[in-house]
Amino acid sequence: MPSTTDLEQFLITGLSLGGVYALSGVGMVVLYRATGVLYLAFGAVGAMGALISWQLSHQDGWNIWLSFVAAILFGGLITLVYGMIFGPALAGRDPLVKATATLGLLLILLGVMDLLWPSSGGASRALTIPTDNNTFQVGQISVTYTNVIALALGLLITIVTAAFLRFTKLGTAMRAMANDREITAALGVPVRRVEAAAWFGCGVLSGAAGVLLADLVALDSTSLTFLVIFTLAAALIARLRSIVVTFFAALVIGVIDAEITPINKISNYRDMTPFVLAVIALLVLNRRRVITVGRQGV
């Protein structure tokens, strides 16, 4: 069994990864609440943003911070374009259909990324945020400022978006739209503009999360794309509703996952943590039967 110092140390590593999961999770939940779309391509967009940032800074000599801005803008733009084309087209459909459509975007991006940045058995790419070089000690291990940024950004986004959705006019409009787009439009809310804001905002978050994850995990298109499944677990625990619950669920997942690492017997099963927790949460929290009313099927 690991010692108390061990547990403390793994708490820190767990919080840092959980922080970025939280950031991604919040982004996805916000968009879902505003447009009813579960943006499964979140990770893929972020991955491509990170690769673009790598290309610009490592190959084309751009300033690294500018390349991050490019990544974030890319995330925002491509999500906006997707939202503007496919949002209205699928507006009346089941959330399942809207989510499945984002899988289409995921596949396209996955293919494009591998074509543009292919692997040939050999060297690898890495994206380093300059804040990696600044560290401070917590006990026996050093924590980089990137970790702090990830966690802080997650927290900030959570608070800001929760407040935004609750207290501002635009935020209320977004919440209304998620319920029923047509009625909201009938009430005079500039639906398309609100939607655009939601899509762009989510895209910006995905770009930021992509860069952070590329630094904290790895700059690899496939793993970054499918990291969204872990983020999804946190969002599911919050039943795709509460941003605050998403944030804390992500942190809990990250910490439990990390804490299991030193227990050698089950260490390799620790990546099941998000799945197990999500399934339990879904079953326990959805004890009552849920029947979809209205439009069904693909």
């Binding site: 140390q9 793994f10 590593t13 767990g14 840092s16 990864l17 291990i141 904290l216 995990v217 790895a218 690899d220 496939t222 793993s223 990291l227 872990f230 990250g254 996952d257 990390a258 690492t261 030193p262 260490s267 390799n268 990546d271």
Partner: peptide, 13 residues
């Protein structure tokens, strides 16, 4: 397991 998700925990371990 690869791809490695949490390199920090692994390195620490």
């Amino acid at each position: 397991n690869v791809p490695i998700q949490d390199a920090n925990s692994l390195a620490l371990n």
